[in-house]
Simulated scan of single mutants.
Amino acid sequence: MAENEEGQEKTEEPTPKRMQDARDKGQVPRSRELTTMAMVMAAAGGFYFFGPMMIDGLLNILEANFAQEREAVFDEGILIERLFASALQGLWVITPFLIVMVIIAIVSSIALSGWVISLEAMAFKWSKLDPVKGLGRVFGPRGGLEFLKAFFKFSLVGALAILFLWMEGRDFLALGTASLEVAMAQMGELLLYAFFFMSLSLILLAVVDIPFQLWDNQRQLKMTRKEVQDENKQTEGDPQVKQRIRSLQQEMAQKRMMEEVPSADVVVTNPTHFAVALRYDQESMAAPVVVAKGVDLMANQIRSVASDNEVPILEAPPLARALYAHAELDQAIPAGLFQAVAQILAYLYFLREEGQSGPERFDDLPIPEELADAP
């Protein structure tokens, strides 16, 4: 029982398949703090580079709208037309800033895990509307952790905001006594400093949150030993099933091999341990081809089939061992054995033409030393 409980513990590191399946489902590490930090810093940088241009553009729009003719003020059509024109002008002024923000939002979102598009994650699920599960997520361990993170973030950012207001309070109060153009410029600078100052706290949060999200995602993907074993069976196959498949494949290969024996020109034997069936067609083949070979029981079956189909059987122990060891099925024999096999085939062709019988054993065939080392 203890072993069973121990086996259910997620102690194994996730396999590549497990990680890929999780990625396909959209379960990848993401840090909201990284995205928030990047967005705030991008906003600060955007205000720094595009702030003067945006302020000048918005001031021009304000001046144009406050300097209306008397007739235009009482004409509803003109007011609506100028309202839409001002909105388009304002959108055009802030477009560079918006483009920067969109790019930063995308880059920061895929920084940890790359670009992930999961149709399964985007699919609508009724379970997401289950209030019981929703409350479980809110008041569960992860919900509590998110609450602590949010509270810490709020406290840190709030403290820095209060500190910034205390440091720059006089400048904020001075805006009321400045002209519109000067006040807008100073407000832009104050906003820039505020964003930059607050982004410092977000850097701290992101530095802490990124390793945590990577660790937490790895922890969630951990597997039990049984899950690893089941996955291996799915990917590599059950060992018993694989063994059965290999056995069936061998049986089919042997059956096809035995069907080729009747078409052989000669069967060279050991005489009892090895048997190799050869076929040679002078018009279509460059060299003799091995159509069947076997040892012990398989060799006996080859000899039996050859005998039933009147295929000549010759005893040539060194040649049989060399052919079995170095020749492959349905392949030409090694070049080093050409001469020995040619002598046997020539001898058989001679006997066939003369209608005579001769010796059924050959012991002095030329076998190269490198091919003679056979089992």
Rank of each mutant, 00 (worst) to 15 (best):
S118D: 05
F124K: 10
E315T: 13
A322V: 08
I80A: 14
L119K: 12
I106T: 14
G169F: 09
Y349C: 06
L205E: 15
Q339S: 12
E353D: 10
D364Q: 08
G358P: 05
D130N: 07
G140V: 02
N65F: 04
L297E: 14
D216H: 15
Q8Y: 10
M54Q: 06
S284A: 14
F172G: 00
D171I: 06
E236G: 10
M19D: 05
E251W: 08
L79I: 14
F154E: 02
N309G: 07
A87M: 14
A121I: 06
D281T: 03
W215N: 15
A121F: 05
H326E: 06
A374H: 08
M167F: 12
V93A: 09
N65P: 00
W92N: 14
A346E: 08
I302H: 07
V107S: 12
S31F: 00
Q240N: 14
A340Q: 01
F50M: 00
P312M: 02
G90Y: 12
D130L: 00
L190D: 10
A64C: 05
L191D: 11
I80N: 11
P262V: 07
I302E: 04
E33D: 09
Q339C: 11
G90H: 09
D238I: 11
P262R: 08
Q249I: 11
E236I: 11
Q331P: 02
L204C: 15
P375N: 12
G114R: 05
P211I: 15
A340N: 02
E370L: 04
Q89A: 15
G51C: 00
A206G: 15
V40Y: 05
M41H: 03
I106H: 13
Q68P: 09
Y324T: 08
G143H: 00
D56Y: 02
M37S: 11
I162L: 08
A332Y: 04
F74E: 14
G45M: 07
L323S: 06
L323H: 04
Q339W: 07
F154S: 00
A161I: 00
L337I: 03
F362E: 11
L180P: 02
R244E: 13
H326V: 05
P52G: 01
M37P: 03
E283K: 04
E6S: 03
S108W: 01
A85D: 12
S263W: 03
G188K: 06
P29T: 04
L204I: 15
R137T: 00
A150D: 03
A185Y: 03
A206C: 13
I104A: 15
A72Q: 10
